[in-house]
Amino acid sequence: MENGGIKAIIFDLDNTLIDTSGAGVVAMQKVSELLKSSLNLDDASIKTICNQFKQKLYAEVYDAATGKPIDEIRTLHWEESLRETLGDRPVETLGSDCYKLWKSSRLRLLTMSPEVRALLKDLRTKYKLLLLTNGEAQTQREKVEVSDCGAYFDEVVVGGEQDEQKPCASVFRLCFEMLGVEAQDCVMVGDSLDTDVQGGLKAGVRATVWVKCSGATECDAIKPHYTVSNVLELPRVLTEMN
């Protein structure tokens, strides 16, 4: 059977095709430099402020029904982190400045490497490709735009624009419908066991490929069909499948 029966590949975005974690580290370094120059803070206080922001970011549950733009919410995260660490010390627009610098620094680094672009270009001559990314709609669409990855896919699905996100089966069924394929025709590729691999398994795809990032730990309850250290290993895995 042509392509081993595989007709489509569904890719995650963050830390699969683009180095979101690495970009986040650099963005935090930029903000730390801003805080040091603006307030002459010691390293411990700067670290506390940045960690407070990261905790708020990770715990964030965005609800578009509130009417607050995501930029406003994340600016508030910085303002609260500054206030919680510095008390009533006046910081004027520093929260806004921190957010703008963090966001712009991170977005500038969210690019696909030439090797990843070449991989997707080649795969698209053989398979249908769909990008499926979790997250708040504006944030993820901005990542898709700055990385120019949308040009390499037949379809792009942002979880924040749907009723449910990965690992829910409904968003995978939407992907299958958009591509005009069945679950067994598809391979799911991503860095998250909880969302990408578990979602693909629940949806009944042909195979799941876990892009195991440095420091990631395995989980006995979620077993991917294949594990790679870099998405560029995917052609080898596809050959094995065939």
Rank of each mutant, 00 (worst) to 15 (best):
I222G: 07
T133L: 06
R236N: 12
T195F: 06
L107Q: 15
G204E: 00
N40R: 14
V144D: 10
T239Q: 15
S32K: 13
E155Y: 04
S38L: 03
K56Y: 11
R108A: 15
T48I: 12
D194P: 01
R206Q: 00
V146Q: 00
P114T: 02
R173T: 07
L131P: 01
E161L: 10
L17N: 05
D43M: 11
A27Y: 14
A118M: 08
D43W: 07
E155S: 04
C98F: 07
G22V: 12
K56C: 03
R74P: 06
L119G: 01
E115G: 00
F172W: 07
T133C: 11
E145K: 15
Y58I: 14
V26S: 12
I9L: 05
Y62S: 09
P90N: 12
V197R: 06
K223N: 07
G180H: 04
I49P: 04
L13E: 03
L101Y: 12
E218C: 08
T239Y: 04
V26N: 02
I6R: 04
T16I: 05
L39E: 07
L120W: 04
N15W: 03
V31D: 03
Q140H: 04
F11A: 08
L132Q: 08
G215I: 06
V231L: 04
L119Q: 02
L130I: 11
R141L: 13
K166I: 08
F53A: 01
L110P: 11
N230P: 05
D196W: 06
Q55L: 14
I222S: 07
D196R: 10
